[in-house]
Amino acid sequence: MVYFTSDLHFEHSNTMKFHPCFRPFSSVEAMDSALIRLWNDRVNPCDTVYNIGDLNFHKEHIHL
């Protein structure tokens, strides 16, 4: 399967403030955990994912 995505905004707390309907989480950690869980439920190692941009807000890496 091939997927296209963008604007995941890991570790970006303002995403919850600016888009509360799409990011209804109480903390950045809860948001990131939910995004990772949803990703892992859908994407498998044989899939190809094109991330168009805005993956995360900090320099640390997110491991999906």
Rank of each mutant, 00 (worst) to 15 (best):
L8P: 00
I62T: 13
F10N: 03
L35V: 07
F22C: 12
Y3C: 02
E11Q: 11
I52Q: 11
K17I: 13
L64I: 08
P24W: 04
H9Q: 14
S26D: 13
N56F: 10
I36M: 05
L8E: 07
Y3H: 11
W39T: 00
S33E: 12
T15N: 03
K59T: 14
E60R: 14
F10W: 01
H9V: 06
M31K: 06
P45W: 10
T15I: 15
E11H: 08
H19F: 15
H9D: 10
H12E: 04
S33P: 00
L64F: 15
N14E: 14
L8R: 03
P20H: 03
P24S: 02
M16N: 01
R37C: 02
N40A: 02
H19I: 05
H12N: 09
F22R: 12
D32A: 08
L35K: 07
L38Q: 15
N51H: 10
R23I: 07
D54Q: 08
L64G: 04
L8V: 09
E60A: 10
R37P: 00
D7M: 01
P20R: 07
I52A: 14
H61S: 15
E11R: 06
F22L: 15
P45V: 13
H63L: 11
R37M: 09
P24A: 04
L64Q: 05
H58G: 05
K17C: 02
A34P: 01
D47P: 03
L8T: 10
P20M: 07
A30L: 06
G53S: 09
E60W: 02
R42F: 07
L35R: 05
D54P: 06
S27R: 07
I62R: 06
V49Y: 00
K17T: 13
E29Q: 15
T48Q: 12
C21G: 07
D32G: 05
F57T: 13
L38R: 15
